[in-house]
Design a binder for these strands. Structure first.
Lengths: 308, 308
DNA sequence: CTGAAAGCGCTTACAG
DNA sequence: CTGAAAGCGCTTACAG
């Protein structure tokens, strides 16, 4: 910028004005500056500008992995908001390793991101407390944080499990299995609660054996229907069931391509992950605009997609 | 940092030394500085440091969308290199819109990313020429760029199509269809070339009708086998074929979950997209280290995954 | 071992 | 309409 100024024979400030389209520059002067800019191939250094300005116009997004299409879709939703609002995105994936999450989040904070959207790993997130106090707006998505107060945008997994179980009951099933990954995780607890609610409402007493199934113990299991906790479990269940699939009705949590091409087709519980990303982004923007309110938890509906 | 210095009763430079672990500070002084740092909750502003240092320790990654698992996997490979080398990643998706690509790339260059990995949209990339000349290392992945000289890391689609077609021929097929999306795209040209090579090698003259199929015209088409250009086409083909799927052997370009659960299972042509991302990252790092060599094109093997 | 000054590339707050 | 000075938060190159 200094070079441009001296080549155009003007002061630094005048170049700044031209670059920013500020008023108060003679067309003639502006033309000279423009010429110098082109001759020198000058491009304003955004980082320097932002250092002076105080904000960075940058958000950070941290997820397990983009290979998970749901998380990719959350990113997509967040990015659409970031694009509208003129933010650029730093991203990083954790592979569910809490250390990686912490390193990434702190590295982004050190770059002074204005805000952070995190799909959290299991475990405590108290390392973020001082950053949040320092003013980094933070929103959690898909899963709630632990040991830290912050906004969260979540799918209504409990309501989904209730709907899925209710659907199976309505179709005449009573021996309904529940296939979960980590029993202690937030999602597992939510699904178990929704399942229990639907069973109780129908007056069915669930046999503990139905809710402690594993893919390996599925063949010949005493159930006529099955609710699977995530896509990987749905896949594992279909593999384990093999020909029995025609005997056992399967409802999977999380939609997937090709679900309708299987025989019989698989019904799924599905939510809109793009909406989760958008909502998280909007929440962040509002916080950045100064909205002060206690942290809130927003739930996005989970619906049954029936296939037959 | 100024505040820390005055609280500890030392000069700015001493704080800098402590923060950077530079030698030449009395343990006693260091302790005082550390105390002040903790009292004030000080965190070094990485952006300011990098402004002074000249580099940003940042790379940019631009793709169509992460919803595409292949592109998500390229990101994963690149990120692993970035993590090893201490870079943070800016990302953005284009949805195949050239304008969005250009805006993103220029925004990242304005932030002075050290390098850029791009899965390019169709169309010219000459807007990048001046940036590349200005020193932004650039590597293209999955698809080659147009109208700009730069490194590229690509799957060997031609070799893959040859292998896939050869496999179908070996299984006794002669009327082999080729289902392509955009006829003029790089991938389509490569697949058509590989297909033609395999057919010629087997002494089969391909009927033009075989290579101009669309999902809509597939039912009752005069072929006994089909090579699909991407996952979406594979899905569309399976849908269009319906029960005929047992009559028409399908080989799809791009592996997908559940491929083995379909009946009959679908064989696919597959490459390792994580390797493409890693290779692109390594190339970038070498360029950043000053390696001068003409732009090169690296091909990653495409192999047939047979399922029956 | 410690520090005062200059500067990275820009903007802000004034003054002319 | 135009510009000289100070400063964003750090590091670099010296000097003591």
């Amino acid at each position: 910028m200094k070079d441009v100024a001296s080549r155009a024979g003007v002061a630094l400030k005048t170049v700044s004005r031209v670059v920013n389209g500020e008023p108060g520059v003679t067309p003639e002067t502006a033309r000279r500056v423009q010429g110098a800019i082109e001759d020198l191939g000058f491009r304003r250094n955004e980082s320097a500008r932002l250092l002076r300005t105080g904000r960075t116009a940058t958000l950070g997004f941290i997820a397990d992995t983009w290979i998970d299409p749901d998380q990719a879709a959350v990113y997509r939703g967040l990015e659409s908001i970031a694009r509208e609002q003129g933010y650029l995105l730093f991203t990083g994936s954790t592979d569910r390793d809490p250390d990686r999450e912490e390193r990434l989040a702190l590295a982004m904070c050190a770059r002074r991101v204005d805000g952070l959207v995190i799909i959290p790993t299991p475990g405590s997130h108290d390392y973020l407390v001082s950053e949040i106090e320092a003013g980094v707006a933070t929103v959690f998505a898909l899963r709630p944080p632990e040991l830290v107060q912050a906004d969260a945008v979540l799918p209504d997994e409990r309501g989904g499990a209730r709907a899925g179980t209710g659907h199976l009951i309505a179709r005449g099933h009573r021996e309904i299995g529940l296939l979960l990954a980590e029993p202690g995780s937030y999602r597992s607890r939510q699904l178990r609660a929704g399942y229990a609610e639907a069973m109780t409402a129908a007056g069915i007493t669930a046999d503990p054996a139905w809710t402690s199934l594993k893919p390996g113990t599925l063949a010949g299991a005493p159930v006529t229907a099955l609710l699977c906790g995530d896509q990987a479990l749905t896949r594992a269940a279909l593999r384990a069931l093999g020909d029995e699939h025609s005997r056992v009705a399967v409802v999977g949590f999380g939609d997937f391509e090709f679900a309708d091409l299987l025989s019989p087709p698989v019904s799924v519980l599905s939510y809109d992950p793009v909406l989760i990303g958008r909502t998280a982004g909007e929440l962040l923007i509002r916080r950045l605009a100064g909205e002060e309110a206690p942290p809130r938890r927003i739930e996005v509906p989970v619906r049954l997609v029936e296939r037959r």
